[in-house]
């Protein structure tokens, strides 16, 4: 092994470590942040009284569930993809008789299932342990929550895979994805339940894909979404699912040609 190839290896490893910074940031934000948000919203509720349309109970229910739902629907595939591309594992994935999209999907599903197995029982236990934390669910609404969480998860996987294809062309893809994630945090119901946002932002949040994996299931869960609103939300999710399916397949084909040109 020459010194030059060794140095090149060090450079790659450094770059990999750098790419992971944002991933860790997002991980920390997603585990600590909902509870910080809850703390602040409870202070707002106490200071402003009637001017805030949401009650204390609704806020508690919303943000505790947010901590769970965000873990179930978020996707780290953009980084996994990036790692595979650098390490060459992507080439092996391409050789397998299955579209890499499904290979990555399987990986994400497995990870999220483990999360769900741990987090959902914890949330249920918390509702028994703490009187302030209750959900008045009907079976129909409960089912709707499960459906919207699943749809939100699938849409998120598709979106992160679409961003991942950008790695065929650019090394800045992970930063691009965190811009997307940051914009989404405003509109998804993460900073505030969408109903509490200023009107123009609220409208944007109802029309864009971010709310599907966060605000929509949560609003249904705490009972702040009428049947019509829930249906509209699911239609928006379906619309974006089609858009990103189209974008992904197009980018994938173009990117693959580009990739072959680089490696071969």
């Amino acid at each position: 092994m020459t010194a030059r190839s060794f140095l090149a290896l060090i450079k790659t490893e450094t770059a990999v470590a750098v790419e992971y910074r944002t991933r860790i940031l997002i991980w920390v934000l997603s585990s600590v942040f909902p509870l910080l948000m809850l703390a602040v919203w409870l202070s707002v509720e106490q200071t402003s009284g009637d001017r805030l349309p949401w009650s204390r109970g609704e806020l508690i229910g919303y943000y505790f569930a947010a901590a769970v739902v965000s873990q179930l629907t978020s996707s780290f595939l953009t980084w996994a993809w990036d790692e595979d591309m650098r390490s060459g594992a992507l080439s092996f994935r391409l050789l397998r008789p299955m579209h890499p999209f499904f290979q990555y999907l399987a990986r994400e599903v497995g990870f999220r299932l483990v999360m769900a197995g741990f987090l959902v029982p914890s949330l249920v236990a918390a509702t028994f342990a703490w009187d302030d934390l209750t959900y008045s669910l009907t079976p129909a609404r409960g089912l709707l929550v499960i459906v919207t969480v699943l749809c939100g998860f699938l849409l998120n996987v598709l979106i992160s895979m679409t961003f991942a294809t950008a790695a065929f062309w650019s090394t800045q893809m992970a930063n691009l994805y965190s811009l997307w994630w940051g914009a989404g945090a405003f509109l998804s119901g993460w900073i505030a339940p969408t109903e509490l946002l200023p009107a123009p932002v609220r409208v944007a949040s109802y029309l864009l894909p971010f709310r599907s994996s966060m605000g929509l299931p949560l609003d249904i869960l705490v009972g702040r979404s009428t049947a019509a609103q829930s249906t509209a939300g699911l239609l928006v999710t379906a619309f974006w699912f089609l858009v990103f399916t189209w974008a992904f397949t197009r980018l994938w084909r173009a990117g693959l040609r580009h990739y072959q040109a680089v490696s071969g």
């Binding site: 919203w41 202070s43 707002v44 106490q46 001017r51 509490l196 946002l197």
Partner: peptide, 11 residues
């Protein structure tokens, strides 16, 4: 900024 839509101050 969202917090201050519902009051001048928070705590």
């Amino acid at each position: 900024g969202v917090y201050f839509r519902f009051g001048e101050t928070v705590n």
